[in-house]
């Protein structure tokens, strides 16, 4: 079947199978930041924005995204660059495999709630697993970013 959608601001027309997952669709179009970490919607590595909302691309048919706006980290480099340095300053990126999903969902969090408490950060990012960092450094990084904005 043929679908049309907007991927990182660019109009895309593509032939897909009915069961092509959005995750595989965007990876096949060069959005390699999007990762698969499980098959059970538990890890959050495949997070993309669909019409601005964070969703799991592993559990979304590409067909359903037809007519919608899909954004991956490839399309949000500047918004990400604004805060990821603070994560790097903690060393909390570690292996990096979960980073894109985590960064995407953090972008969504900060758009929705620009001044979250620590508990709000934990709750919003609960669906993003990380096995390396122990999460605390990610939290410190986000907190440092938020503090720097207040000071700046």
């Amino acid at each position: 079947m043929e679908i049309k959608l907007t991927l990182n601001g660019k109009a895309v027309t593509a032939h897909i199978e009915a069961d092509t997952l959005l995750l595989d669709f965007v990876r096949a179009r060069g959005c390699l930041s999007v990762k698969r970490g499980c098959e059970t919607e538990n890890c959050g590595l495949c997070t993309v924005l669909l019409d601005g909302k964070p969703i799991l691309s592993c559990a979304t048919l590409a067909a359903r995204a037809a007519g919608h706006h899909v954004q991956t980290l490839e399309g949000l480099q500047e918004e990400a660059a604004d805060f990821v340095g603070f994560i790097a300053d903690q060393g909390a990126e570690q292996c990096g495999f979960c980073n894109p999903g985590f960064v995407m969902n953090t972008i969504a969090l900060l758009r929705e709630n620009p001044d979250p408490t620590d508990d709000e950060i934990r709750a919003y990012l609960a669906g993003n697993l990380c096995r390396c960092s122990g999460y605390e450094g990610q939290l410190r990084g986000i907190r440092a970013y938020l503090d720097s904005k207040k000071e700046g």
Partner: peptide, 9 residues
């Protein structure tokens, strides 16, 4: 229920 992304879908 899992996380925000799951609940968005």
């Amino acid at each position: 229920i899992v996380g925000v992304q799951f609940r968005n879908s």
